[in-house]
Design a protein around this nucleic acid. Structure first.
Length: 430
RNA sequence: GCCGUUGUAGCUUAGCUGGUAGAGCACUCGGCUGUUAACCGAGCGGUCGUCGGUUCGAAUCCGACCAGCGGCGCCA
């Protein structure tokens, strides 16, 4: 038994092989039947001639249905007429299951594909998507392991009062109520006091009724936190990481990118360093150089982001947002306390924000003051405040939307096409 | 939450100012020895999203509702 990719080589030509998988295409013309077989590694055409089989056997081979599962034995030969350049001359076969008709035919709508997502994940397109996604998740973890970080796990069920701002999902909990996590950040901040540099990959949940092509209700959040790092240090880490992740896909997923029709040249340009622009300077440039109607204090909405990013072909860091634009835990710039030491990373080609991060407040009195200003209940944050009482140190961290990165790297129209089973405001099946 | 848009066969759809629903794919049967989401012939398949209204007559016009999709806001 061997996988299909390994059959597609000059070494296999002339040899007898056995492959197994699912029927990708089936055609017959009386005395000859073509079967294109698919497995996780690729597809190969097989051809069966009626004179090599009993009428009953040939009838089975010439009436196979799409996605039926089977095993084929035969001799490999090079043939330019076959879809992948090689062909198996069938001498024997075994059917595992002959299907009724497969629901997916050549005409499909986005909506229908979501309804039968459990079957659409078998398509060559979606197989390519999942292979690239796998590379991205691996590259993220590899990068941090190589840089001395530890992988940690944090709870998904959390006490209801947390970060404030984003809307949380409420879940019954032994007569009480908990929320589904929207970020591991506070837990990661706790763990740097032993491990110093940590990362985690897990789902985050947002109960906002977002209806856009770049929002999911449940998404994969990659977060890191590191002691002794400042905002600038962290951006250096991030740009090296982005380069590492994108180039990993460029190197390992050539076939998949081609199948998805992605322009690889755009990805090859994603190399550190990335430009860093202070929010205030960005507004100034937008107004003076690009003629956009922005002023200090304008929120960066989707339209503004797209307008700005049309001037760049690499991701851009936007730093030093006004205090009131950001959550309470961001550290005010000691040189200008009206702005915080933070950054968003905006992806090119209109894909928008993929990272939000920055330096955390590590001084106890500053944190207490900001919690008060944000009108948050101090008791809810007792453990977060405690971290500033016992050996507090400067530290920074960020959160990255892996599905958004995947969407951008693959050049997809909708974030739902970047995850196997998307959860949105109205879709929980399959 | 606000705004927009769509709903006709298993899937993709045509159907103009109202006259009684047509096609392609899939499926079944027949034909075909080199096909590339094959081709040729035949067949099967529709309470036109739901409910109500106008009308001699509604897929078509009107109203309400339901469901999906998209845009904004929020964010990753």
């Amino acid at each position: 038994m061997q996988d299909i990719a390994s059959v597609l080589s000059k070494d296999s030509a002339g040899k007898e092989v056995t492959v197994r998988g699912w029927v990708y295409r089936a055609r017959s013309s009386g005395k000859i039947a073509f079967i294109v077989l698919r497995d996780s590694s690729g597809v190969v055409q097989a051809v069966a001639h009626s004179e090599n089989f009993t009428p009953e056997e040939f009838n089975i081979l010439s009436s196979l249905t799409i996605e039926s599962s089977m095993e084929l034995t035969g001799t490999v030969r090079e043939d330019s007429r076959a879809i992948t350049g090689y062909e198996v001359g069938v001498s024997g076969f075994r059917i595992y299951q002959r299907n009724e008709s497969f629901p997916i035919t050549k005409d499909q709508s986005e909506d229908f594909l979501l309804d039968i997502r459990h079957l659409w994940v078998r398509s060559r397109e979606f197989t390519a998507v999942m292979k690239i996604r796998s590379t991205l998740f691996k590259a993220f973890a590899d990068f941090y392991y190589q840089n001395g970080y530890y992988q940690v796990q944090t709870p998904f069920m959390v006490s209801t009062a947390a970060e404030g701002g984003a809307t949380l999902f409420k879940v019954p909990f032994f007569g009480d109520e908990v929320s589904l996590t929207q970020s591991a950040q506070f837990y990661l901040e706790s763990l740097i006091f032993s491990l110093e540099k940590v990362f985690t990959i897990g789902p985050s949940f947002r109960a906002e009724k977002s209806r856009t092509r770049r929002h999911l209700t449940e998404y994969w959040h990659a977060e890191i936190e590191a002691a002794w790092l400042g905002n600038d240090d962290l951006m250096e880490v991030e740009e090296r990481m982005m380069e590492y992740m994108v180039q990993a896909v460029v190197e390992n997923n050539k076939e998949e990118l081609k199948l998805l029709g992605r322009d690889v040249e755009k990805l090859k340009k994603i190399k550190a360093p990335f430009e860093r622009i202070r929010y205030g300077d960005l507004m100034k440039r937008a107004r003076e150089d690009w003629g956009l109607d922005f002023e200090y204090g304008t929120d960066l909405g989707a339209d503004e982001e797209r307008a700005l990013m049309s001037h760049f072909d690499k991701p851009v860091f936007v730093t030093h947002y006004p205090v009131e634009h950001k959550s309470f835990y961001h550290r005010p710039d000691p040189e200008n306390p009206k702005e915080v030491l933070c950054h968003d990373l905006l992806a090119p080609e209109g894909y928008g924000e993929v990272i939000g991060g920055g330096e955390r407040i590590w001084e106890l009195d500053v944190l207490e003051k900001r919690i008060e200003e944000a009108k948050l209940n101090r008791d809810d944050y007792y453990w977060y405040i405690d971290l500033r009482k016992y050996g507090s140190v400067p530290h920074s961290g960020f959160g990255l939307g892996l599905d958004r990165v995947a969407m951008w790297v693959m050049g997809l129209e909708n974030i739902k096409d970047a995850i196997p089973f998307p959860r949105t405001i109205r879709r929980t099946r399959p």
